[in-house]
Structures are given as C-alpha cells and as structure tokens.
Amino acid sequence: MQVLFKVIRQKQNTAPSVQTYPLDVDPENTVLQGLNRIKWELDGSLAFRKNCRNTICGSCAMRINGRSALACKEKVKNELMNELAISAAKLPEITVAPMGNMPVIKDLVVDMSRFWEHLEAVEPYVSTQARAVPEREFLQTPEQRSRLNQSGNCIMCGACYSECNAREVNPDFVGPHALAKAQRMVEDSRDTDTEARLEEYNKGTQGVWGCTRCYLCNAVCPMGVEPMDRIGEVKQQILERKDAQDSRPVRHRKVFIDLVKQGGWLDERKFALLVVSNTLRDLRGLVSLAPLGLRMLASGKFPLRFEPSQGTKEVRSLIEAVQRQNSQTSDK
C-alpha cells in the first residue's frame, strides 16, 4: 500500500524541517523497514540508528506518530490505525521525529550523552564488596530474582527519558531508565550498599522525588519495565526508613496518610500547612503559602469547612490493619 512517511529532519544547530517520502510498503512491515527502504532507494542522506531489527539492542527509538517507540517493533498497519485523519483523498501518513529531551545530531539521531551520564549517576553496578569472588557463585532464590525481572528487561533505548515530563523541567533529574536501574540495585540480594544507595536516591529532586508521576515512561516503554512503578518501589524502601522530619517529599507522603486516617478525605488546608511548614518550624515555607491562601480567600476558593467522611472510623482501622500487616512482613 502507498504510505507517506513524514520525517522531521534536522542538522545540528539548525531549525527542523519536514521531508515527505511516498513509499509502497507491505502493511505488515515495521516502520524501520520503511525507513531502511527510504535510505536505500530514495535518499541515502537520511540518518537514523538501527542494529538488531528485533527489539533487542535499543538503538532505533524515535518518535513515531507523537510518542517514543522502537521503529523495529511498530508495524506500519498499526500506525495507520492510530492515525485519525485518514481520508480517501490523501495518502495515509506516518510521522517520524527524533526523540525529545536530547539534542539532535542529525535527523533521527540524538546525542544521548546525558542519558548515559544519568545512568552512571545511580552507580548501576552491584557493589564492589559483594563482587569479591566468593568460594562458590552467589545464590539467589527464585523469589529474590523475580524482583529484578521487570527492571532487568530494560534495553536502554531512551524512549522513557525522551518523554519524561520531569526531565524536561529539571536537567538534574536522572530519569526513569536510571531510577529503574536504581530499583534493580536496591532489590538485588547480592548488593551490599543498599542503605547508602537509598540515601543517594532520596536526595533533592535529582532522584526518586523528582518524578512527577506523569506515567509517560510506563506508557512508552517497549519492554514492560514500567519505570514509574519501579521508582515507586524505591520510594517505598525510603519511606519505610524515614520519618516526616526527613524532607518535604517524605513529609508529603506521611502527612497525607495521617490526614486520611483523621478524616477519610484529605483536609487540604491542614495538608498544605503541615507539608510546607513542618508544623510552624519552617517559617519560609509558611510565608510562601500566604499569597496562595489570601488569593484563595479572595476568590472564594479557600475551603472554610472540612467535612470528614462518614466512614472515617472504618477507614482508619483499615489503614492501621494494613500498616500492621506490612510491618509484620517487612520484619520477617
């Protein structure tokens, strides 16, 4: 069938432009096969990365119809189903663009240096001490190994990093690929640096707390790593060890659950006050809230009352029962 490939092309430090290539392709072909044919038959100057053609190497990630994906995984026919504006008059289109959050070198090839530096920043190696060769190999139970399955599937393609909303506004945030790897290190029974790692990943907003839970990494990852959920698992480990005085992100989580225990619903007034100002200890935090409070009062938005849920008692005892069960299993 006839398909129009619209490729966003770019040279370093110049503005991008769109080039279109009409191509007669088998709908069962992958987008990568289409790009290869363009390069071989129509325009040898088109640049893109590829290697395995089989969703193994992670080279061919690019933005296909608006989201980052592997060109060797996505089929032409599925891309056309996604495309809404197919009219009889014009050719069906597939738009291909370079990944985001990384500077373009040429066409679909981006500079991934920061991506690799950010991976390095989480120390993605099982700690040295544990690597001192034992008399026999390190043994893991199937249960211990299974906790590494999802993050272990990462092929470092960059799709998650490309879409990450937190990375876009925070150049220090190490990104979903690195934090999924961090989870793999924290959960690895052979690693002896767990506590030091957690301290590191807990810092500021370069680590787990920088994630804004946009779900984009989960949505685009071609290998089912679900980085956001892996980040959540690292957060769980941190929250188990820290109290509310540790930092605002930790306090945010602790206060949240405490307030639900008190009222079933979240009392936003108390929440804002307790998270930001740490019960009046942090004056700067408190002062920073004043304009918002006044503005909300002026617009009639400030909640003057809080009505607890009629199920508050049940909810509180349910949460406490869950917390008891969790602390029993983590003591084991």
Partner: peptide, 19 residues
C-alpha cells in the same frame, strides 16, 4: 458515597500496594 475515602492520588501506592 458518603462513606467513601480518599483514593490516595497515587500516594498510597508509594507507601504500599496493599494500602
């Protein structure tokens, strides 16, 4: 649902999936 409770907005899960 007058007896319902806060869904957690993704925050419960960072404490525990069971919660």
């Amino acid at each position: 649902l007058k007896k319902a409770a806060c869904c957690g907005s993704g925050t419960y899960k960072e404490d525990s999936q069971l919660l």
